[in-house]
Design a protein around this nucleic acid. Sequence first.
RNA 1: GGGCCUGUAGUCUAGUGGCAAAAUGACUCGUUUACACCGAGUAGUCAGGAGUUCGAUUCUCUUCAGGCCCACCA
Length: 778
Amino acid sequence: MADLDLKSIEKKWAEYWEKEKIFKFNPKTGKKIYSIDTPPPTVSGEMHIGHAYSYSQEDFIARYKRMRGFEVFYPFGTDDNGLPTERLIEKLKNVKSKSMTRADFIDLCLKTLKEITPAFIQDWKNLGVSCDYGIYYSTIDKHARKISQKNFIELFKAGRIYKESFPTIYCPECQTPVAQAELEDKNLGSLFSTLKFKVDGNDLGIATTRPELLGACVCVFVNPRDKRYKNLIGKKARVPLFGHEVPIIADESADIEKGTGVLMVCSYGDKYDVDAIKRNKLQPRIIFSHNGTLNIKGYEGMKIKDARKKILKELEEKGLIIEQKQIEHAVNVHDKCGTEIEFLPVEQWFIKILDKKSELIKQGKKIKWHPEFMFKRYENWIKGLEWDWSISRDRHFGVPIPAWSCAKCRKIIIADEKELPVDPLQTKKKCPDCKSELEAEKQVFDTWMTSSLTPQIASSLAGGKIKIPYDLRPQAHDIIRTWAFYTITKSYLHENEIPWKNIFISGFVTLGGEKMSKSKGNIIRPQIVMDKYGSDALRYGAASSKLGEDLDYQEKDLITGKKFVTKIMNASRFVFMNLAYQDKMPKLCESDRLFLSELNKLVKRVTSAFEEYNYSRAKLETEKFFWEVFTDNYLEIVKGRVYNGNASEKASAFYALYHGLLTILKLMAPFTPFISEEIYQTYFRKHEGRKSIHLEDWPVEGGVRELRHDDKTWAAFLEIIAKVRQRKSEAKMAMNSQIALTLTKEQMKEMEEVISDLRNVCCAREVNEGREFKVEFF
RNA sequence: GGGCCUGUAGUCUAGUGGCAAAAUGACUCGUUUACACCGAGUAGUCAGGAGUUCGAUUCUCUUCAGGCCCACCA
């Protein structure tokens, strides 16, 4: 057969599904609802390969559930309320967000998104992701802003939200507080310098990698068990270069082995310092401004790294450095920009969560994790949490925090639910107590504050018909600590409920075992792959590895996928070439009955695999059956009867072929939806009558009489065929060469009822009983 | 330092307390009434060690290697 025009086949059915609204959610059908909390991708130009794989994997489940008779709620959203979108819009529209009002910029975003989102979503449609694209949200649209702000108000009223100036993880590059979840480790080289402090006129060496913090030094720790420094406790140390005196305090946390065993505590070098200062009730010396420069005399306006250089030089000139060595150590950086984070006291908003850690673990336990071990990652993350959730970001673009404060009486005023969504910068308010003009809150929400509400946002688009918990949340493992965690937290705090019953965690796509990244230049573009091999082949590739495991991108998997598509098309051609449709089950020939009995077992296995969300086993089983049982053997077995059988032999074959193919097609429909649809529409629809194979009923077992020994008989049948093929191959004879076949008495008995099919498939002119299995050529 | 995952054929992946599997590559042969994007056949594998067991690739412990998350950051 000529090369299949996969592209036009896939295009045809993608358009058909959209036009006929095949995947439209309709709560009026009365069917049981299966709800999916679809991940909203960030609009960033085009879908990447990781998307292609993970959305394929969740779509297998969606399509399966639909065929199982569920009304599938499968919305589509985009996550547009963050830095990537801000940057994208700035680039596309050649604007600077900060030179516009927030309201105007959000308007421009919405307008631009409206222009570019359809092309972006087209990739998902081309891939065959069977969402109801009519149920669409963006996390910056009016609707999402309203829900996000409403939730904030609820939490505020419940006393869950507080505003505090607190030394917080702060990114000097992005000039905003960030959450613990936004940190990454990075190994950096650093200069470890031992500096001369003075105590009672004597030198005291203290090692540090952050000499620029000298001016912020508020005390010095030594370990009380450290004999070297016992006599210093309670005395004062003079800070080099800056000259102020700080107390020497005994603290168990000082590591005797590290550096000189003495450490300086500064406001603030890291979380340790924050705790140390709080614990000892010390007065902090803040030397950084929010823009990441120093504000201490002599170094005003200098960036941290420049100040470090300058101070080191001055220390050296004055002979205050005792020792220096190069070390490598891990530092925390902001995941968005890679900048080393600092700790700065900033006014910000928090959701109190630390008091609910064990409850949140309990909530997580109520959810079924696929794979199960992913729960551990969730649990570990919560156990290690040391900060409340900081939800405010000092950025221009985002969902505004709906709050004002009174400069005079320091009262915080929260928006009224009726006025949502609201931008405080656009809404003037007076203090209800002192009547003075209120100050608008300038900060916006952390994007997770809004995206953790996707179940509520999507549900409200369906008229609130979808209740929490949803049935399924699909997502990747890198955002367990953010998206999954925050969504569980929100549902717990608002609804006292889990957000979904199941969470389905996909792995990453790697190339040669390495993460794909733009900087490495090892990106595979799914658009090109789909173009070359077809979407069915790409989905087929996405189905070939276990859930939760990283999957190495292999072009050969796609070639195999494409081969499957061609093969099933060709097999269908054969099935229908001579077929006369059998409405009712005719009297079956024994091999047809055995085949259908095997098919039933397959249906059972595949269904149970799908029920466990084990799509890869479902696909593997079906594919194996199709290839090894259906095409390699069964088609060969019935060929003789299809061409030359009598009416009743033909009828039996036609019935089994028709149902065999239809069943395989249905089992594969979640994986390869396009070719399945093509074959269904071409051959089956006139008999089966549904508008789409994807609206068909999932195959059920039954229909044929099954006997206890079917398995054994069928296996023996296939084994004899294989043995004959082996003998022919060893003898370098063609497969269609004529033979005389000798079977043992036992084999003869087992093959009794399929003997004429056996003769056909082996091209055996005669079959005799003998002492041993034998193949002789004519 | 803590937690989790992984290690199966040249490659990439399934899988199991009882003969170790598919795809791909390699080699040999064949066929044109579904299919050369084909068919048939051959060779090739459980990281190392110890334990539990009649039996371990599978369970337990351990070593080694790789990955992820967290902690450390003076």
